[in-house]
Computed example of a mutant assay.
Amino acid sequence: MGGAGTDTAMETADIVLMADNLEKLPHTIKLSRKALAIIKQNIWFSLIVKFIALVLIFPGWLTLWMAVLSDTGAAIIVILNALRLLRVKE
């Protein structure tokens, strides 16, 4: 806890508390669970968009520019979805 820990211990730890206050531990666990759920959502969304683009490219229905725009749009949606973590309150 705090800055008194060794660098090796801080690198291998799952959670590093930078203050000697354990009251924030439940919030940290809640935030990490929410972050993991959002990461999984973002990965699935990205994979689905890529798969749909791949399926539409072979018959020629998806041009290069449409694929670029869909990839950029998917990246923006993933970023906006991840920004929901900023609204998590203690």
Rank of each mutant, 00 (worst) to 15 (best):
Leu56Phe: 12
Leu47Val: 10
Val55Gly: 08
Phe51Val: 12
Thr6Arg: 07
Leu85Gly: 10
Asn81Val: 03
Phe45Arg: 08
Lys30Asn: 03
Leu22Gln: 10
Asp71Leu: 01
Arg87Pro: 04
Ala9Leu: 06
Ile39Gln: 12
Gly2Tyr: 01
Met10Gly: 08
Met10Arg: 14
Ile77Glu: 08
Thr12His: 06
Ala37Tyr: 10
Ile43Lys: 06
Val78Ile: 09
Gly3Ser: 10
Gly5Met: 11
Lys89Thr: 13
Val78His: 00
Leu69Ala: 15
Gly73Lys: 00
Phe51Thr: 13
Thr8Tyr: 00
Trp61Thr: 11
Leu54Phe: 14
Val16Ser: 00
Arg33Cys: 06
Gly73Pro: 01
Val49Ala: 14
Ile57Gly: 04
Asp71Glu: 09
Met1Cys: 04
Glu90Trp: 06
Leu47Asn: 05
Leu56Thr: 09
Arg33His: 15
Lys30Ile: 04
Ala75Tyr: 05
Ile52Leu: 12
Met1Asp: 09
Met66Glu: 13
Thr63Gln: 07
Leu85Trp: 07
Asp14Pro: 03
Arg87Met: 06
Ala4Trp: 01
Val88Trp: 02
Gly5Asn: 06
Ala74Leu: 05
Arg87Cys: 07
Leu62Cys: 07
Pro59Arg: 03
Ile38Glu: 07
Thr28Glu: 06
Lys89Ile: 12
Gly5Leu: 03
Leu17Trp: 01
Lys40Leu: 10
Ile39Asp: 06
Lys40Asp: 15
Met10Phe: 03
Ile39Val: 13
Leu31Tyr: 07
Ile79Met: 08
Ser32Lys: 06
Leu17Asn: 00
Val88Arg: 04
Leu36Tyr: 13
Met1Val: 12
Asn81Asp: 05
Ala82Ser: 15
Ile29Val: 14
Thr6Ile: 07
Ser70Asp: 08
Ala53Ser: 11
Ala75Asp: 14
Ala35Phe: 00
Thr72Asn: 10
Ala9Lys: 06
Arg33Ala: 14
Ile79His: 15
Asp14Ser: 11
Ala53Cys: 10
Leu83Trp: 04
Val68Met: 11
Ile15Ala: 00
Ile15Gln: 00
Ile57Phe: 04
Val16Trp: 00
Leu54Ala: 14
Ile52Met: 13
Ile38Pro: 01
Asp14Gln: 03
Ala13Asn: 06
Ile77Met: 15
Lys24Leu: 14
Asp71Asn: 12
Lys24Thr: 13
Met66Asn: 10
Leu80Gly: 00
Trp44Asp: 09
Arg33Lys: 13
Leu25Phe: 12
Asn81Trp: 02
Ala74Glu: 08
Asn21Glu: 15
Ile77Ser: 11
Leu69His: 03
Val78Asp: 02
Ala67Asn: 05
Leu47Lys: 05
